[in-house]
Design a protein around this nucleic acid. Structure first.
Lengths: 183, 183
DNA sequence: CCAGATAACTTAGTCGCTAAGATTATTAGC
DNA sequence: GCTAATAATCTTAGCGACTAAGTTATCTGG
């Protein structure tokens, strides 16, 4: 392969990852949330709740999403309203609110991902073992890279302006939506 | 490779693509928008404007993003306010508003992506030609798959409820944010 | 020309977010 | 045990971005 052809290939991969795939992923998740009748942020939180290997508290959700505690109260209200999750007070520490996915939540969410899951399996069948390992390696590398670049930009931004009240909770690590904290 | 090991590999790829990468991509784009001092939606629109190979009208932005014309008016207002784009009336059809990226827009946005670009190049250097081709093929396949599944879900959703006033503009195909149209 | 279609803007209302403070529960010091 | 400090969530006020509906300006076909 000529070096110019290779650099065009690298360029195409960048465009597909950074532009196309990100857009389509966002649109897909928005569509799933629409189907569930909730906002994208609520869906994201439901994901955190359902996938965690331990009971999740309201405060944990705030840290995970970068939202304020007040916003999380609203998220849980709406998830309860939609019958997808419910609150319980932690008996050991009655200040805490533990959020649990409703028993029926999985059976309402799963069908929406079923088509994608089947398609992904079918897609994988067109790749041999070695190729799939390459794909996984590349994705893991990309994750690492994206995370690092995001942290760099966030640090740069906070270090640069360093003015308005940016002392929200505990330096929220993973913004998933909502407004900028600079107002 | 045993078949169970392979299916675990496929599972891991799915999680990385559908969960990790999508989250990190959203957070990254949110961070870029924060750095520019605009909302994520505005950044997305600026992307459409800058990357298009033809002048973009307000109506086109509405179709591309799935937002209403009123929302686009606000987007363009804010992009103008930030000095990143400007309006012009189309001389041929004076109803139309053509949006153009400001000359300085690129030099303000590009630095934010520079680090990621360099990292992506460095990452690519760890893969040989054949491996990169596998990655590209997989990504293109994924794009196709995501698009198809999104369309399927949207069609299912609209076909299923078919009640409230869902006659917004021209059946917006690519929602990028904002609220659900069902209220 | 004039009626209808089309493009963007305007306005009113809604929703989800932040920030700040109130409320309730726990823990530590004395 | 009482008090103060701390912690976790909820409440409230205000804001910004969005939708839906209506308005204005322009274009197009009879």
């Amino acid at each position: 392969m000529t070096s110019s052809r290779r650099s065009r290939l690298v360029e195409r991969i960048g465009v597909q990852l950074g532009r196309e795939l990100s857009t389509r992923t966002i649109v897909f998740h928005q569509t799933v949330a629409d189907c569930l009748g909730i906002a994208a942020t609520d869906h994201k939180c439901l994901g955190f709740i359902a996938e965690a290997d331990h009971p999740v508290t309201a405060g944990e959700l705030a840290t995970l999403t970068g939202l304020t505690s007040g916003a999380i109260t609203g998220v849980i209200d709406r998830l309860e309203g939609a019958g997808l999750a419910f609150r319980e007070r932690d008996p050991r520490d009655r200040r805490r609110v533990v959020v649990t996915a409703a028993p029926t939540a999985h059976e309402r969410v799963a069908p929406l991902f079923e088509g994608l899951g089947r398609a992904a399996l079918k897609l994988a069948s067109r790749y041999d073992d070695r190729e799939l390992e390459v794909v996984e390696r590349y994705l893991v590398d990309c994750l690492e890279m994206m995370g690092e670049e995001t942290r760099r930009l966030q640090a740069e931004r906070l270090g640069a302006q360093f003015s308005s009240s940016n002392s929200s909770s505990s330096g929220g690590p993973t913004r998933v939506g909502g407004r900028s904290a600079s107002r």
